[in-house]
Write a protein that binds this DNA or RNA. Structure first.
Lengths: 191, 191
DNA sequence: AAAATAGCCCTAACGGATAGCGTTTCGCAA
DNA sequence: TTGCGAAACGCTATCCGTTAGGGCTATTTT
């Protein structure tokens, strides 16, 4: 599916990755707030405008890898087995996503995120967008037939579970406990 | 409790109100993004630094009135009747808060907020802070005895209910429906 | 009245983000 | 092969939110 993409696209991808890698390295070395976009651009040997041509904001440099978060959430719903219960599929996927975020090498990055209000806010607003996409996926599932409100609420609850788990002492147990609550909430909306 | 506040404090309060009123008027007239802090300062006849002496950020100018949101949420928990169920008290308070936010004159303000990503993000981050305060209040209630995770999750769910209702077509019905879900989720955490 | 303080102003700047415009590099087809 | 359009990038200048530094004056306190 990813055949020779042509020199141009390869160079573009290389520039993008060079910027992201340089940024993350500098952020971890000196601290997020202590590194300016101009520093990143200089160290990556590109112009400031080029940085913003690849990334919408300074915060986006940190979350470059989490592109597919939203897709994985919605696919967990749409691609689940014909008779697999919704909440179970969501639970499983969120647990996997939390696992990613609390993996070995992610500790310094997470500490950096928790240490910067700007990054925490950005992450939450990402969560909001993901909740909206998930709500749309729930509303579109013909087998569920719940109200729009129930879908939206459940989507936000699921994203809450992820956010809470990422900051908890025992992420796995937190996901499980919150999803027990979500399960009950979902059942309460049965037609 | 509010004895003669002295000329100084009266002048300060007047300046603050003048800035907030001017800002809101300009925002509604020309659009939030089209009005700069420098415009607000000039129109209110104060220095830019004075604006930031009274308000922490441009967004805070819009949410000046919602100071007590957090206090009302936590008080709904701490000041409820001796045998009043928790969720019922929360439900009632959130419904009242949503009523405020969807009142007569609030429509243009809400449209402005929904139309600006910066304002939406700020409002959500306010909600986060409120959820943390509410979670603390829940954890501190000796009559509840639920896990920290259950308290945190319930607090976020309640704030979700508020956020969802503010954007919904029928805010009142939305609050009621989401709180039916929250009630079930809360019951599922009974020890 | 003198001293301390709070509120405010002015100037200057910092850092994120963008617009305008020119240059190079590449893809594609005539 | 050549030529052209588009994409990627650079440079410059600028806007915007926000803050620091320093000073002035009205109010409050002693």
């Amino acid at each position: 599916m990813t055949e020779p993409p042509g020199r141009r696209e390869r160079k573009k991808a290389a520039t993008r990755r060079k910027i992201a890698d340089t940024a993350l390295r500098l952020f971890l070395e000196r601290g997020y707030d202590a590194v300016g976009i101009r520093d990143v651009a200089a160290e990556a040997d590109v112009a400031v405008t080029t940085v913003f041509a690849h990334f919408a904001s300074k915060e986006a440099l940190v979350f470059e890898r989490d592109q597919d978060f939203e897709q994985r959430l919605t696919q967990a719903v749409t691609d689940r087995g014909p008779h697999e219960p919704l909440i179970g599929a969501l639970h499983r996927e969120v647990r996997a996503l939390v696992g990613h975020c609390t993996a070995e090498g992610s500790a310094p990055v997470r500490r950096m995120i928790e240490g910067s209000p700007a990054l925490r806010e950005y992450e939450e607003s990402m969560g909001l967008r993901h909740a909206q996409a998930l709500a749309a996926a729930l509303a579109a599932d013909p087998g569920l037939s719940r109200s729009t409100t129930a879908c939206r609420a459940t989507a936000r609850f699921a994203v809450d579970a992820y956010a809470l788990a990422c900051q908890a002492d025992d992420p796995g147990a937190t996901v499980d406990e919150v999803f027990r609550m979500i399960e009950a909430a979902w059942e309460a909306t049965a037609p």
